[in-house]
Amino acid sequence: MSDEKKPHAIRTRIWREEAESDNPFATRAAYCNGYDVYGEMLGHARWVDMLYLLFRNEAPTASQADMLDSLALALANPGPRDASVHAAMCGGACRSTAASSLMAALAVGAGQLAGGREVFLAMEGWALCGADIGAWQQRLSGLTEIPGSIWPSPEHPPGFDPHGVSTATTVKQTLSCLAGFGVGTCLPWLQNNLSAMEAAAGRPLALSGVAAAAFADLGFTPEQGEILHLLLRLPGAAAHALEQRPLGYKNFPFGTVELVEESGKERT
């Protein structure tokens, strides 16, 4: 669990700090994967450079940074109809804490419907099937359940919209834009094989499916794609939560519940 010689030390390949001479707990310099963050990167590197560097341990190429920047923009606001943003607004409308709104967005946006887990599963598909349409057709024809998992059983092929009729324009625009950066092979292949993939899934592609292919093209693992998807969707949740605070609960939909009888009698 820890280094025997330094039992309180934290091992990391990402971050190193040098202390001020007068205080071992104050930082004189901080290095991210060898780069001086405050001395050299600050003012020169973009946020997406830092994001890529943190997860991939190397600086991105210009086209990788541009693509991640555009992906971050596409994911930044799922909009107030999205369940994760809805959850954040439930916090905002009743003036819950800021963190609780983000925690609500993370919890709801973590799942297998448009969430982090969906991206993880879709990225597993890219790792296993790559550009093999036959492999994809086999994978998308059934849903894989992991016995003993904390996650519910999957109900639709990951990366596709279970309630969709045709590919949404915003999904096509995002796919087209991101494929145009020429980073990796997944997005261009997905664009060229979209009809066959959607036919295999029986549903239109979803934004989570585009995001999964984009994360794969950027070299992220499924675990990294999952957590980045969670992270990159938070700005919209935050903004919509704050927007609801002054409006208050009286201006936020409360919904209607219609009670129906329990189908079975109580069991003892």
Binding site: D3, A9, R11, W15, R16, E18, Y35
Partner: peptide, 21 residues
């Protein structure tokens, strides 16, 4: 609660390098 001095970060990554400006 468990404060961590800079020296207790056991760094195992890349050596210092220059950011490509």
């Amino acid at each position: 609660l468990y404060p961590i001095p800079c020296t207790d970060i056991l760094y195992e990554g890349e050596s210092k390098r220059t950011w490509p400006k």
